[in-house]
Design a protein around this nucleic acid. Structure first.
Lengths: 140, 140
DNA sequence: TTAATAAATGCGACTTAGTTGCATTTACAT
DNA sequence: ATGTAAATGCAACTAAGTCGCATTTATTAA
């Protein structure tokens, strides 16, 4: 376990006013063990011992993302990835290897003045997405 | 016409070793007139006087993107947008309004040291994606 | 100018990621 | 213990894009 996560998925769900169900607990516990964001399909495979419907998984992932329990990440792969949104680690960006698809967190964010500039142009609630890709050391 | 584009789509296609066909010329001429990147569906509508197949459009857009004639842009909307990749204007980033979906080019790019850092970590051929969203002045 | 050929197209079926309607079941508050 | 809203399963659907294959077209070389 790389980062400190909410110790108790049940408590976490309750704190967001969401019901605690076996699937939901399994999803959150599974994501707690991950150090990189996973695709819905990967989560599904990781939970293969449990029997559940695809639609339910997608619904839960969406619900959790809206509730701020998960970050929904788009690395331009044509699908989303999900990671636990733990407070200690909440906003960050990624680099994905173009070959092995390994994902790492990068230790920087877009400069503040970019947002300020856009606010100066009249934009409100400015958010950003930024990610990198490249051939990683072990693939090169 | 906001920017200077290749004056002759036929010449452009030839220069990339691609065949010049009525649809391809229409796609490129149409995109020459746009100041914001368009989705395949929007291009399709803009070319409604011509009769062509969806698959052919997608194939052309892909071919053009690979050839560097178009930039394929992903603003996290669940589909791609395409814009002419004119030399004068080649690398840039966008902001999209969360309400009216108007897209503007932003006048900044990721700081050089980010790429240098990642190269220092062993990454090769590092590329990035960055885009912004927010409520634009007229929607606020 | 024409014939050869490689590339582009049309058609239809398919795929992937995700959504939706609806009936049923489950978690939780009382 | 029970009522109710939320969650689930199922099946059908959607949007964006892809693929195989037969046909047509643009370009090359004769």
């Amino acid at each position: 376990m790389k980062h400190q996560h909410y110790h108790d998925s049940e408590t976490l769900l309750r704190s967001k006013g969401l019901k605690s169900t076996p699937l939901r607990l399994a999803i959150l516990d599974f994501l707690n063990e991950q150090s990189a964001p996973l695709a819905a399909e990967e989560i599904s495979k990781g939970l293969s011992e449990i029997d559940f419907d695809r639609a339910t998984l997608f619904r839960s992932l969406k619900t959790f993302s809206k509730a701020g329990i998960l970050n929904m990440i788009d690395l331009g792969e044509g699908f989303h990835r999900y990671e636990k949104n733990c407070e200690l680690h909440h906003h960050h960006h990624h680099i994905i290897c173009t070959s092995c698809k390994k994902i790492e967190i990068v230790p920087f964010c877009v400069p503040d003045q970019f947002k300020k500039f856009l606010q100066g142009k009249g934009y409100r609630n400015v958010t950003h997405r930024m990610d990198f890709s490249g051939l990683c050391k072990s693939c090169a």
